[in-house]
Design a protein around this nucleic acid. Structure first.
Lengths: 188, 188
DNA sequence: CACTTTACAGACAAGTCTGTCTGTTTACAT
DNA sequence: ATGTAAACAGACAGACTTGTCTGTAAAGTG
């Protein structure tokens, strides 16, 4: 027995991604992760120096995925209003599929101590990146660049608020309300 | 020694309020609470059957405080736009004073398990109450009641999003951006 | 075949957590 | 003054936490 399976690191990261997202960073322990990933504890600490570093690896991986999605959307030839609407509709699908677990970054930030600089930095990076994306999308519809930045920021807040409240209320109306408000903002 | 101080329950609740808010529900233990409150563990469990019940008592107490503030604001004779602006400015002061700890309800909801029905109910209650308040405030400026409800919901999302992102970014601009957007929404 | 990398199993340390329990002391009201 | 309620101190149980350590087994490479 003890059949050695390769790619322990990948298995750990995938399992941890699922668990961190569904149960929150502080709600999951190393023991549960390695048990569900089918690895030994020594294998874990060979690849990750600490639980926090596993967390930052997770946040970074989902950040990269969303970055490519956003780049594709920005480059798409559809009208900006339609792209924005479909961005919110993507969010709605994501929230329903994940049982309204909300934003992984905000959730993690709500529990991680101040003495977790790596995690805090990852959250900051992702949030600023989201803001930048929405400003760029707004700029595709609004010529005045100063006004576009302002509208982009407003949409950023609607996006964040709808994610958070859909999580709290376990309902989808916040996302639809935010989508309509955001699209209206673009349309002038 | 062992000078018996009365009002152990109050001291516990006050201490826990401070700690839960600053460090998050899952980041604070019973031992820390009773130590800082200067009570014995037995005294704690005489007043609260569990940590969760202490948490719901905390959430309820701050909910009641904000309810009276909102009732006063709704009844004030100032124009609705001004009231809304000052509601956001209150939020900004609160966030700065608390070192950007964000919304106690959302923060608690991000970590409490699904098997904490009392906490979940308290969050739901507060959030629905906030939504109702903002709908009522919007109705004071918008005659069409259906449109007022829609605008109230949008402001609710701006309010939530600005709180959340001010926490993540540790900056105040989200609150000011949300305030301006919200006031504009009322003004037509 | 020999060597190195990778993963395995699992005990262990040192600390945390919630909650229970026993017993003592203080304050107050009758 | 006597009974009762509330608060005290603190040991204890049992489970959990992160991280370390020792040793072994399997796979790939020269």
């Amino acid at each position: 027995m003890a059949t050695r399976k390769p790619n322990a690191k990948e298995r750990i990261l995938e399992t941890a991604s699922e668990l961190f997202f569904q149960k929150g960073y502080s709600g999951v322990g190393i023991n549960e992760i390695i048990e569900k990933a089918g690895t030994a504890k020594a294998s874990f600490y060979q690849h990750f120096p600490s639980k926090e570093s596993l967390c930052t690896a997770w946040l970074r991986s989902i950040h990269e995925r969303s970055e490519t999605q956003r780049a594709e959307l920005l480059a798409s030839p559809e009208p900006p209003g339609k792209k924005l609407a479909s961005y919110f509709e993507q969010l709605e699908k994501f929230l329903v599929a994940s049982h309204y677990r909300g934003c992984p970054y905000s959730n993690t930030g709500a529990v991680s101590d101040e003495n977790c600089p790596g995690i805090v930095a990852e959250i900051l990076n992702h949030k600023e990146s989201t803001r930048k994306f929405l400003r760029a999308l707004a700029a595709q519809a609004i010529p005045d660049s100063e006004r576009a930045a302002e509208v982009g920021d407003r949409i950023f807040l609607l996006y964040s608020g709808s994610t958070s409240e859909a999580q709290n209320l376990k309902q989808t109306w916040p996302v639809r309300v935010a989508r309509d408000a955001a699209v209206e903002m673009l349309g002038r």
